[in-house]
């Protein structure tokens, strides 16, 4: 358990212009007592990582619908590593085929939450991941 709210950055990478889903997730996490930073649509991996490090979030949640996950996440991990932030928990959300999910988990994405994941499950997953990692 942390003595402060869990900090989460939700980001949307790629061209897809819908943010209804991510806004719903943001509210769910807030209602579970977390501090949620929302950085808007159409972010590049560089922008997302820079923001996540400045904000020093516990969890970086990246949502994408555009089928670019297998190029985006390696970039994100490389950038996090090079900036000394390899203790950040990275999770993914959106729509993708099962084989991509497996691929992402191999890369180090801690959890992939597809579009039909119930809100309570997202809260429980993030809470578990952060408490497993502990205070930093």
């Amino acid at each position: 358990m942390l003595t402060r709210p869990i900090r989460v950055l939700l980001a949307k990478v790629g061209l897809d212009g819908h943010d209804r889903g991510i806004r719903v997730v943001a509210r769910t996490l807030r209602d579970a007592g977390m501090d949620v930073i929302y950085s808007g649509l159409h972010r590049t991996p560089e922008e997302v990582v820079t923001a996540a490090i400045q904000e020093d979030v516990d969890v970086l949640g990246v949502s994408l619908l555009s089928g670019v996950q297998l190029t985006v996440f390696p970039k994100i991990f490389r950038l996090l590593d090079s900036k000394g932030a390899n203790d950040m928990i990275v999770v993914a959300g959106g729509v993708m085929p099962d084989e991509d999910v497996l691929e992402l988990r191999k890369m180090g994405v801690k959890e992939v939450m597809l579009q039909d994941t119930p809100p309570d499950m997202i809260v429980a997953t993030l809470t578990r991941l952060v408490s497993e990692r502990g205070e930093r």
């Binding site: 807030r30 007592g33 977390m34 950085s39 923001a51």
Partner: peptide, 9 residues
């Protein structure tokens, strides 16, 4: 809830 949505960024 004690949580917050921080959207100024």
């Amino acid at each position: 809830s004690g949580g917050a949505i921080l959207g100024d960024r």
